[in-house]
Write a protein that binds this DNA or RNA. Sequence first.
DNA 1: GAGTGGTCTAGACCACATC
DNA 2: ATGTGGTCTAGACCACTCT
Lengths: 235, 235
Amino acid sequence: MLKYITIANNIRDKINNNEYVYGQRLPYEHELCILYNCNKQTMKKALAILVKEGFIVRRRGSGTYVKDSKTINPINYSSVIYTRPFANLYNDVKSQVVEFSVIQADDFIASKLQVHKDDFIYHIIRSRYINDKPYSLEITYMPINVIPNLRIDHLEHSIYSYIENDLNLKIQSGHKKITSSISTPLEQKYLLLRENEPFIQVEQIAYLSSGVIFEFSSSRHHFKDFEFHTIVLLG
Amino acid sequence: MLKYITIANNIRDKINNNEYVYGQRLPYEHELCILYNCNKQTMKKALAILVKEGFIVRRRGSGTYVKDSKTINPINYSSVIYTRPFANLYNDVKSQVVEFSVIQADDFIASKLQVHKDDFIYHIIRSRYINDKPYSLEITYMPINVIPNLRIDHLEHSIYSYIENDLNLKIQSGHKKITSSISTPLEQKYLLLRENEPFIQVEQIAYLSSGVIFEFSSSRHHFKDFEFHTIVLLG
DNA sequence: GAGTGGTCTAGACCACATC
DNA sequence: ATGTGGTCTAGACCACTCT
């Protein structure tokens, strides 16, 4: 494991376990370097992760301080379910596979996945539940030559785990687009919506670290249940 | 200006001007270092910005490649209007000030701004237009002692510009939460919604680089017009 | 094997807050 | 004045791809 990741994980754990609490000044960079036996730049890289995640703030001339993470309610991170700090909180996620087939890409899907028209791709529809309450309907397209040998039991758990652990591919980033539209009978059925009620859609194009697109997906949520959290760097 | 920011801006411009086009391999890191007269680490820092913004992808052993930024439609970045690459595209943003007063923080606002109950804060409601079409209703709370001397003409343009250029404070990050609710007459009036139609809300707590919270805001959008784009690092 | 990008170190210098 | 975190450099070593 990389040193700066290990250090970041360790410090994050300490914040989560209240060894460092809200408002507290962390040891100075130089002290942390000695504590973790690393160089200044490596410590900067580790702490930069925690800044990005919103756990700490660094002030030149002053020090590094723990931010108020109590304002972050982890249960609401349904749309960033695969990202680091919160993934483990979702033990009771179940998936019902509504559709699992191989189709040929039309122009729209081909442009999103950046494959050729008529290339073979998986077409997957899953209804997902947290604590037996429906919380999303997920429509997923994946090129069959990027993600081979997908089976239905992978869908019932996590496709991402199959990709990372079994295929040994590295998932890098997702470009997400959040929009809202009036529901059709499909969303009404699986999200328990009434006619004319809208749903929230999170469209995603997901990349491997190689730059290859492996997924185009649409996660659809009941408009009343939806919460999406993100930290944006400004200025 | 910082060297790595300058370099990132320059390379981003070249991509936007099609000097580097989709799929093209950029010069190797070492060549770019010579071209921009900088060190390896500085170039890494510059290119990391463009990776995060989704402009390029780097492949170990191979090179750095331009990603398909045509899938990113800048006009849709209404909710990240203040972030770097797209801010300049919004020349025709107008604000109508609906409310501008100083009130005392109740428990809810005080907890969001992390100030004391009954501290004085600005209460601002603005209706914003792009190309004379209503696109958001923004409700903003700011502690008066963090952002002093705010005047109505600041509200009609950009509060952020007043904070950064006049007060000389550095804006760092925003914690955004996106949700949806049924509209009240307020949203119906300013977003041209019908009864029982929902709106999309982007709640934000915004931080200065000092770690001080300077803003709690709610941007409300018509559900049909709303698009929010973000890039999430996975895995 | 050669060359790429990624990690890590050591150290200089700077901007900023006040330990 | 001292010490903080931020930037930049120079160089070693590693993992990975293929020029």
